[in-house]
Design a protein around this nucleic acid. Structure first.
Lengths: 215, 215
DNA sequence: GAGTTTATGGAGCGAACGATCCAGAAGAGG
DNA sequence: CCTCTTCTGGATCGTTCGCTCCATAAACTC
């Protein structure tokens, strides 16, 4: 019988020689490497060199390159799930949209030494081999976030918050497209201020479409 | 002395055994493969298998994997350059924006057997190794397209086509972000109609910001 | 026809890949 | 102390990588 649980957290691993590196820090560094070079473009040797640990340590802690990748992706995917989850609970739709767009941009553009950028939007979709599970997970997450937003927009329409004739599906797709675009632009080097300005402009334009809460 | 010109087009190569495959078709198939799996994720063996030719033929025609990649990128990058170049010559800004957004979405969502999707927006940015020249080229192209649009927006402001207080830089960044987002969404599987609806909604929202040509 | 030029197919090069193995090291439990 | 458990460093596994080489094939020029 074998233990293939790579100590996801502080479980009851108190026996044996303690790990000499910070596991979360390693995930962060790995995530940034994956984000910069893609999955196939990042070799295990580049990982061990950057993370400053040996092959055995990496494989003992994460099982495989794909395992490390998946854990990095899941770690940072969670942040965006939370943003959507909390945003859709806001009272008026304009705040929902503002929180999603501005909040995500802040997340996209966290300073480099504490954040890898957005692994979710770009680095994952390509690079299929042996990451099929992970890309399926990401697709599901995107779908889930989008569905949450869509339901919130539909509610806003029922409550009469939107100008007549506005399609919930179309507005949602528009916001999601912009969301992905802001993510890509952040990886391409656009400064945080520029992205926030663009997001706020989009927010302002959408608000003009809002009926009852028009400013 | 060596000839390293990989017969970019129908030059004066009339002597010798003729090539047994369609060079442009090979570029198309290769582009689709690169687009789906990324540069590092696409092996030369996968290329030769999909393109139906031997290693020697591939290297004789394109010099290297990087060479084939670069040629594929340049081929399809040109299409987006043309879209921007022609769009900014339109008389009113609303038509400029419409042509850029809708035209690009049409380009993004060409049927698969004649078009690879948009190599430019996503598959290139990551995957650095030995594609540095190509990603620099892409960055330059994006910058060039963005500059052209920015200058056109500035002209529209000078001509009083936009509501007072509108920043050309911010509006341009917004459009560019949306453009990248639409590209990403197309590769993620969103249907053409959905993307066009979103683009048209964006276009409509922006038009409400236009002063003199307000509908 | 002979001679030249280029393309094709397949074997195979060295290097890098992801992953494994093992002897030793470093803690915890008794 | 000793034992048990886990982690570490390094050598090394088999595979795949991008790419080259070479004999042969198929067109051209003369």
């Amino acid at each position: 019988m074998e233990r293939t649980i790579y100590n996801v957290n502080v479980t009851e691993r108190n026996r044996g020689r303690p790990r000499a590196f910070d596991r979360d820090r390693a995930i962060l560094d790995a995530a940034r490497l994956f984000w910069q070079r893609g999955y196939s473009g990042t070799s295990t040797r580049a990982l061990t060199a950057t993370l400053g640990l040996s092959t055995s340590s990496l494989y003992a802690a994460f099982g495989s390159k794909a395992g490390l990748f998946e854990e990095a992706v899941r770690t940072y995917a969670e942040r965006y799930r939370v943003i959507y989850e909390q945003a859709v609970t806001e009272k008026d739709l304009r705040t929902v949209i503002e929180r999603i767009l501005i909040g995500s941009v802040h997340e996209f553009t966290q300073p480099n030494d504490t954040h890898p950028g957005c692994l979710i939007a770009s680095a994952v979709m390509t690079d299929s081999t042996s990451t099929l599970d992970t890309s399926a997970y990401i697709a599901e997450l995107h779908g889930s976030n989008e569905q949450a937003l869509l339901r919130r927009v539909e509610r806003a329409i029922q409550e009469g918050d939107l100008a007549a004739g506005t399609s919930a599906v179309v507005l949602t797709e528009f916001i999601q497209a912009l969301w992905h675009g802001l993510s890509v632009r952040s990886t391409l080097g656009t400064a945080r201020e520029g992205l926030i300005d663009a997001a706020q402009l989009a927010h302002k334009l959408i608000c003009q479409q809002l009926a009852s809460t028009m400013s």
